[in-house]
Write a protein that binds this DNA or RNA. Structure first.
Lengths: 348, 348
DNA sequence: TTGAAAGCGCTAACAC
DNA sequence: GTGTTAGCGCTTTCAA
């Protein structure tokens, strides 16, 4: 298909001939393996020859010989249309690149068979390691044959022992709720997702943070203030709509939403009820979702998910850089991003 | 680092011994290379042995021998936080998977040196081919050493000849504008991006569609109705804000926005001016951006970018499936997605 | 200080 | 029908 423009493959052999040394010498000099034992003249000749010929080592051959391919596999259950966690992959790739490692990316869409096949294919390519990441923070059945030195991101294994990198959702929710309580809010609703199928750790932890802050602040828990809906703006809107039809005395002054999409729905519901955000209703989200949180009006105060940090850390752990992490469970902070959707409440 | 649980590598040799045949026979039987010349009994023995031993071919060795690795490299300028075009990568990966090919993903962030290094690294891994994709539709300087059989997605090469897959932005804009004109609008604004740095083909083509429909409909072009801003909701809001302070007679009844983020800003501006969408202002976006277009209130009528289709097609072209595409420039349709942000205008 | 040679696991050409 | 063998391009041990 090509018109022969693909340069005739130059291998170590041509370099050796060109430099007038043996191929063994070339290999050792180019790889700095006791290269200092060669006189500088020889080393230069080799380097020059390699450069002139445009020599590029064949990583297949090297990998076959050394059984290290400088490739890693990242398998995720991410779905095409979900920009959610693509930051994880991007960050992992970034670190890989910084270390001369190439990343195989496989999207399984969550299918177990595809996962297994992907792992097998990757294993056949002799990858040096795996990262297994999920879109939402949950418990997972780890695919068969996934090596035990794999790093899991955004999920915990239902069985077996792996290194794991997860967001501190409990802490994030706790911070957000304290922010609301300290702003004087006492009737705070929790707008949860109703998608409880694959053990939704995120939802549980965020709810726990909600409940505990209430308790710590001596605010009685009111189950009427916990509502559920689909985890998108429609679900958020419907759920908050229900909240806002409550009698004025029991109606919340603030809502803490499971995620930013639901929070966006909360804005819509509030508007439909003739309420201003944050004047009449304060709203806090979760995720710091690009294209939503910052761009909505008014800017949404929310908790950021450390996708980038998780991706980077996972790859570093896998590549064995930055050793200090002896923990095998890394919980990363979810910082509160303060924008304009919460207003301090003067105590009634 | 592992506790030796990594099963002792079983190669073709063990399978041969186990089945009582030679390694050549195993290779040919397992690869169906004139496997029919072997009696069924032998073939079975080999298959059984391979299965029992959990044999997995080493793709490095195979690749070294056959010089086909069943891997392809996808290099993009995508930025971590931009979910924009991740659909391209997901779709490409999907097709790769369907064909037993593994995808190397490299994010360059647009840096030329990183691009070049990525291409070299990928070449060293002996990938079978490349896809080069950009986040926004524009002209690009193709990285050095990128093979000429690479498929470009969402961009056209400034020089050289490559197969290219791009969205039909002119057509999309044309469709959207006709929709507006047919709804009776005559004062239609174009809210363009002001980011003209890397030749913004998208912007040029969408503007051309805008201008041409106006002309075809006999509507005079009014330069006051073309405004620019940053291509996010803030820019859209500011630009539309300017539009809405125009005197009532010249104020637009509809705005066609460069993208959905700007359209979201247009909603905000309208609201701030006490106007309803679409009652007082009709809005059309571009991109059909996930998490925005469908979830905003009211739902945004917009033009969808065929990211998924582009990714699939590009990979198919690269892998040589679906041959009928003799064209080397594939322009993919951008369908209009009708939601609720446009209202028919009764002619004044 | 350098070269020769033995493989890494596989495929393909050639024997038998 | 099946076995043998020569590499693919590289690293690495052992000799010289």
């Amino acid at each position: 298909m090509d018109v022969g423009e693909r340069v005739k493959k130059v291998g170590i052999r041509e370099v050796a001939k060109h430099a007038g040394v043996s191929i063994g010498a070339v290999s050792r000099i180019l790889n700095n393996r006791d290269a200092d034992k060669f006189p500088e003249a020889t080393r230069d000749r080799v380097h020059v020859a390699a450069h002139e010929l445009g020599y590029r080592p064949n990583m297949l051959a090297r990998g076959l010989r050394t059984s290290r391919t400088h490739t890693v596999g990242l398998v995720t259950d991410m779905i095409a249309t979900t920009p959610y966690a693509s930051g994880i992959a991007a960050a992992a790739q970034e670190v890989a690149q910084e270390n001369g490692v190439l990343l195989f990316l496989v999207n399984t869409g969550g299918s177990g068979t595809i996962e297994t096949n992907a792992v097998d294919a990757l294993l056949a390519q002799q990858v040096d390691g795996f990262i297994f990441a999920t879109m939402s923070y949950r418990e997972v059945d780890v695919p068969e044959r996934l090596p035990t030195d794999t790093v899991l991101v955004n999920c915990v294994p239902r069985s077996g022992h792996y290194r794991v990198v997860v967001p501190d959702d409990y802490g994030g929710a706790h911070t957000a709720m304290r922010y609301l309580v300290e702003a004087g809010h006492r009737r705070i609703a929790f707008v949860d997702t109703d998608e409880k199928d694959p053990d939704p750790l995120a939802s549980q932890l965020r709810f726990a943070g909600y409940r505990d802050v209430l308790h710590e602040a001596g605010i009685p828990f009111d189950e009427n203030l916990v509502v559920e809906g689909r985890s998108d703006s429609f679900g958020g809107r419907a759920a908050v709509d229900r909240l806002l039809t409550l009698p004025a005395q029991t109606r919340p002054t603030a809502v803490f939403c499971f995620n930013d999409r639901m929070a966006a729905g909360a804005y819509i519901a509030a508007r439909r009820h003739g309420m201003q955000v944050p004047a009449d209703l304060s709203i806090v989200g979760y995720d710091d979702q690009a294209l939503i949180a910052a761009e909505i009006d008014p800017g949404l105060t929310t908790v950021a998910l450390p996708h980038h940090a998780m991706g980077r850390l996972a790859m570093k752990m896998l590549l064995g850089i930055d050793e200090p992490h002896e923990e095998s469970l890394m919980k990363l902070e979810c910082p509160l991003i303060v924008r304009e959707s919460v207003r301090p409440l003067t105590q009634p």
